[in-house]
Each structure stands twice: as C-alpha cells, then as structure tokens.
C-alpha cells in the first residue's frame, strides 16, 4: 500500500493529538487499512465456516486477532517489495494486496486459485504482488527473505523484503543463521516476529530463554523493536521506520509484534494449554475495535463509513465464495504438471 503525499489525514483532524503515523498516511490509506483488517477477519471466519460445512478439507491456521499486525507491517510496502509468510499467512497475503476470490479458490483447491489448487491454505502466494509465499515449515521463509534481499541489493533495486514468522520460529536455527547473514551483509530486510504467545501449545515462557524475542536482535547487531501487535498505529510506525532504514542501506531490523491468536493453532486444537479467561482478555483488546475507536475518536472516519466498509467486505467475501465454488477442479491427469518448468 503506497503512502500518499497529498490529502494528509492530519489536515482534516485534530493535528495535535494525532500519532505521527497518521500524519504520514492519508485518510484513504487508513480506510483501506481498516478494510483489509475486516477482510482478513471475514476471510478467516468464512474459511472456518466453509470447513465446518465440509466445503473444504485439510487444515488451516487462522489469524483472527492478528489483523493489525499483518496490515500495519505491510503499510510501507509496494508491489516492488517482497514478503515471505507463514502457515498462518492469510492476513499477510491480504495485507500485501491479494484478491480474496483467488485466495478462496485456492482454499477450495480449484484451478482459479493463486496456486491452481496445488498449494492450499499453507502455500497461498500472489507473486505478482511480491508475496513469495506462505510456508508450511516453521522458519522456512526467513532465509529465503534474506536471499530476496540479497537479490535486491545485487540488482541495485530500492525494494525491501519483510519476513513474517511466529514466536515458534525464533527457536529454529534458520532464524539465527538468517539474521546473522542479513546483518553481516547489511541487507534490506525486516524480520517481523508475530509473537502470539504460543508455538502450537508451547508458550514462549516455556520455549524461549529471553523474555522478549526482540532481545535476540542484539546478538545480530540490529535494532530490536517491540510493538503492541494489536495496535495498528504502533505496528505501522515501526514498519515504516524499519523499511526506511532498510532502504537507506543501513541493514535489517527485528520487530517483535506482540499479539494473540484467538482461534486454536489449527483444526485439531482443543485449547488445553490456555484458559478461557486468557482468551477473553485478548478478545477485549480486539485490534479492529481498537483501530476503529481510534479513527473515530480522531475524527478520521465516521460510524457510517465504518458500516460501509463492513458492507463492502461482506460483498467481496460472498462473491469470492461463489467464485471459488464455481471454479473448476484441476484434472487428476495433471498431477505432475508444474513440477518442472516446461
């Protein structure tokens, strides 16, 4: 999403109270960010519902509760910038500009899906928008992001690469190897750890020796930044700063976005490792609600406009579901197609 240099939100609002980030973003940018957050929420809910109704198979990893993190981080990015994503990647995909109908078609395993039904939930990627793909391997995308950043530097491009991963990935060797190389070579990459508290069932307290994952940045001589992952403005501000730094050639940043996944790890999760009270306490800090309240309080959006955004999203999801259902399935005779380049 490109920032606009005109129509600054600040011009129409209480300039003195505005967080700095809202001076950098136009009212249109903010409305689009809110739309994407709703779109992620409704995408996840629709995916879940389609699964319950037996319309799709396999498993899925929902990012309900993490919408501000996905959208906030993608704010400074254009189509020329790259991301690598995770098994919990639907939000990143939408944040980076993917079309919901092609994502749903992929979910349904159809030919019109982003990966022609070969990838599914865990491998949705819209390469045309710079999304190098979700990844089924924890930490798998982190070195790939560093490679893409090396590639941009070698080609003399201004692009940055954002690597999303979860708290679980910060204990994989790939994380440490990748951060080290990115720092040694001063590459334009932003590492974004979405710390949602649990790697499947194992809490960060039980799995991670440092209290904050951002603390690990110091081992790789890069800034480590902690943000409230449920606060869009905080996330976006940190992302702009890290991307600016990367574009200036000053190297990587590690952002720890502290958030929470409201749903279980995947379909098989029975929530035995956390309490109902804990989940409810985070539901009370819903990132969409927080963002809407802030925008309304600052006079940047009206309740009527919010309703309009929600209605638009409902239509997009409904049309997307119809598109996905109507799309043809791949032919079984094509099972080995796309293994190699023709």
């Amino acid at each position: 999403m490109a920032q606009s240099t005109t129509n600054k939100a600040a011009a129409s609002a209480h300039a003195a109270n505005l967080p700095d980030i809202y001076r950098r973003l136009s009212a249109d940018d903010l409305r689009e960010a809110l739309r994407k957050m709703h779109l992620i929420r409704r995408f996840e809910e629709s995916a879940e519902e389609s699964y319950m109704r037996g319309l799709i198979h396999g498993t899925m990893h929902l990012s309900i509760g993490q919408e501000a993190s996905a959208v906030g981080i993608c704010m400074p990015l254009s189509d020329a910038d790259y991301i690598t994503s995770t098994h919990r990647g639907h939000g990143h995909c939408i944040g980076k500009g993917a079309e919901v109908k092609k994502m749903l078609a992929e979910f349904f395993g159809k030919e019109d899906g982003y990966c022609r039904g070969r990838g599914g939930s865990m491998h949705i990627a819209d390469v045309s928008k710079g999304n190098l793909g979700a990844n089924g391997i924890v930490g798998g995308g982190i070195p790939i992001a560093v490679g893409a950043a090396l590639s941009m530097k070698k080609q003399g491009k201004d692009s940055v690469v954002v690597s999303f991963f979860g708290d679980g990935a910060n204990n994989e060797g790939a994380f440490h190897e990748a951060l080290n190389m990115a720092a040694v070579w001063k590459l334009p990459v932003v590492f974004v750890c979405e710390n949602n508290g649990y790697g499947m069932s194992t809490s960060t307290k039980r799995s991670t020796a440092v209290p904050n994952i951002a603390d690990r940045a110091s081992a790789y001589a890069m800034p480590g930044v902690i943000v409230d992952g449920n606060n869009f403005a905080e996330v976006a501000a940190a992302s702009f700063e890290a991307c600016d730094r990367a574009r200036r050639g000053e190297g990587p940043t590690l952002i720890e976005s502290k958030t929470y996944r409201i749903r279980g790890h995947s379909r098989s999760d029975r929530n035995r490792y956390r309490t109902k009270e804990e989940i409810e306490s985070w539901q009370a800090r819903d990132p969409i609600g927080i963002f809407e309240k802030e925008l309304t309080d600052l006079g940047l959006i009206t309740p009527e406009e919010i309703e309009k955004v929600r209605a638009e999203v409902e239509v997009e999801i409904a049309e997307g579901l119809e598109f996905a259902k109507a799309s043809p399935s791949p032919s079984p005779s094509d099972v080995t197609r796309y293994v190699y380049t023709d």
Binding site: P143, I144, V146, G147, A148
Partner: peptide
C-alpha cells in the same frame, strides 16, 4: 541459511 539465501535469490 545459506541454502535458503540461494533459494530466495533464485526466486527473485
């Protein structure tokens, strides 16, 4: 990590 960097560079 090195192999992953090579994959990422090849992809882009």
């Amino acid at each position: 990590g090195g192999a992953g960097v090579a994959v990422g560079a090849a992809l882009t």
